[in-house]
């Protein structure tokens, strides 16, 4: 089976019943995508499939054959950080960093569909991404700063 990830095609040996998360982490060693719960309740494993944020722990790879998959490794292009990545660094939105890849991708997909959201829309958009370190304050501010610019 072939998967298209971050613009590159990968031939994979895992069966179609393997989660996308496991294939990313264990077969392709794209370990930027994290597993926090395995049940779709924390958002740490969020990746984009055709531009939409999904929990990669709840998707088996058979489902995403032929789709465009974006992981955190593909968010910056040609060594240039995505504005959200830069904002997360500048605003202090990163602490332990375990939820960070998932939240960045959720935020990207969200801003792509709504470029001028309110604070409460941002909070709703990232409600599927738990963060235990920051209290969300600086994460929300970082996303707002990108939305405003």
């Amino acid at each position: 089976m072939k998967l298209k990830i971050n613009g590159r095609e990968y031939e994979i040996v895992s069966g179609p019943g393997t989660t996308l998360l496991d294939v990313l982490r264990y077969e392709l060693r794209l370990t930027g995508t994290k597993e926090g719960c395995g049940t779709g309740s924390c958002g740490s494993c969020t990746v984009l499939v055709d531009g939409k944020a999904i929990n990669s722990c709840l998707v088996i790879v058979g489902e995403v054959e032929g789709k465009e998959i974006t992981t955190i490794e593909g968010l910056s292009r040609q060594g240039k950080l995505h504005p959200l990545q830069q904002a997360f660094i500048n605003e202090g939105a990163v602490q332990c960093g375990f939820c960070t890849p998932g939240i960045l991708l959720t935020a990207k997909a969200f801003l792509d569909s709504n470029s001028h959201p309110t604070e409460s829309q941002i909070r709703q958009a990232i409600a599927g991404n738990l963060c235990r370190c920051t209290g969300y304050d600086k994460i929300v501010r970082a996303i707002m700063s990108v939305a405003d610019s």
Binding site: V13, S14, P16, T18, D22, G62
Partner: peptide, 11 residues
């Protein structure tokens, strides 16, 4: 690889 199917099923 250390991946495995989430169950024994045909897809």
């Amino acid at each position: 690889t250390s991946t495995r199917s989430i169950g024994k099923f045909e897809y």
